[in-house]
Design a protein around this nucleic acid. Structure first.
Length: 285
DNA sequence: TCGCCACAGACACTTACGTCA
DNA sequence: ATTGACGTAAGTGTCTGTGGC
């Protein structure tokens, strides 16, 4: 399971909700995503060392208070005063060498402190969940994709994480699930679209052929081929009533086929029957 | 009952960090 | 050693439902 030392150092950035500054930074063509910035964005980073769970809760309360109470004209002063009070320089006293994940993170801190970014603009540190933590979160997500506050707290206790971290993980996990499902749906719809396009093309072609035939043939030629026969004695063409073994619709029959001699049709003159013969098929694929 | 407000939770979008090829 | 792509933790703004007044 998770050792308490896994989260001895965690950062908490106090977002102060400056949408204008945030969006300005987003659209900055020079400082793109992933670019280290040294601008004085009003965000605060607080390191949580060891026993600081209560501190975290308190700061979270402060964070919410700031969000609720701030007004745009005075928010900067709130930010700066809060910066003076709350901002704690991130440092690491004695990193245990067996905690590789934290070691990697902390090793970057000294690099960034050297690059000119002062303590008022310490970049946030990214927490990497351990395999055990991820596995348990995944397991919980399979059972339930959302958690109520009690479940969240219980899971956070098991994982030795803050409830907020569990909440964020579930939010991101739901987003990933939705994204994957959207991709699957998109693929399915693309295939449906292709199938319908093919079908539409085929039907258009068939329609063109039928139109061409309609323009070039007399009326009786427009009747279904299976119903058209010609009396051999009268040489009259009609859709007579079949007697005997019916022919298979659409199946061309000739005198040479035995099946053609098993069905008889009433002549259009209605004076006699004749063996059924199909004149010719109308539709040829 | 209606309107207002505070709050919490979910979500979309975005940022920034860590990893890997 | 550098760089770009990618995965993902976390920040931010918005919307919605709920409960109290």
């Amino acid at each position: 399971m998770v050792s308490p030392s896994d989260n001895q150092e965690q950062t908490l950035t106090l977002g102060l909700g400056f949408s204008s500054i945030s969006s300005a930074k987003t659209k900055n063509p020079i400082l793109g995503p992933g670019t280290k910035s040294c601008d004085h964005e009003p965000s605060l980073t607080l390191s949580l060392l060891g026993e600081t769970y209560q501190t975290t809760t308190a700061v979270a309360a402060v964070e919410r208070k700031v969000f609720v109470d701030q007004e745009p004209p005075c928010s900067v002063s709130v930010a700066s005063s809060l910066s003076n009070v709350v901002s704690v320089k991130r440092e690491r006293e004695s990193a245990s060498s067996d905690d590789l994940e934290l070691e990697r993170g902390s090793s970057r801190i000294s690099d960034e402190e050297e690059d000119g970014c002062g303590p008022t603009n310490t970049p946030r540190k990214k927490l990497r969940l351990t395999k055990d933590q991820s596995a348990l979160l995944e397991e919980s997500f399979k059972q339930q994709s959302t958690l109520n506050s009690k479940q969240k707290q219980a899971l956070a206790d098991r994982l030795n994480l803050r409830p907020r971290q569990v909440e964020v993980w579930f939010q991101n996990r739901r987003a990933r699930t939705k994204l994957k499902q959207t991709e699957v749906d998109c693929e399915y719809l693309k295939k449906c679209c292709e199938t319908l396009t093919d079908e539409n093309r085929r039907l258009q072609k068939e329609l063109q052929e039928l139109k061409a035939l309609k323009l070039g043939q007399p009326f009786y030629m427009h009747l279904p081929a299976a119903t058209l026969t010609m009396c051999p004695s009268c040489e009259k063409i009609g859709a007579g009533v079949s007697v005997g073994v019916p022919t298979i619709p659409g199946t061309p029959t000739t005198n040479s086929t035995p099946a053609s001699k098993t069905a008889f049709t009433l002549c259009p003159s209605k004076s006699h029957f004749y063996p059924q013969q199909q004149i010719r098929p109308l539709l040829v694929d």
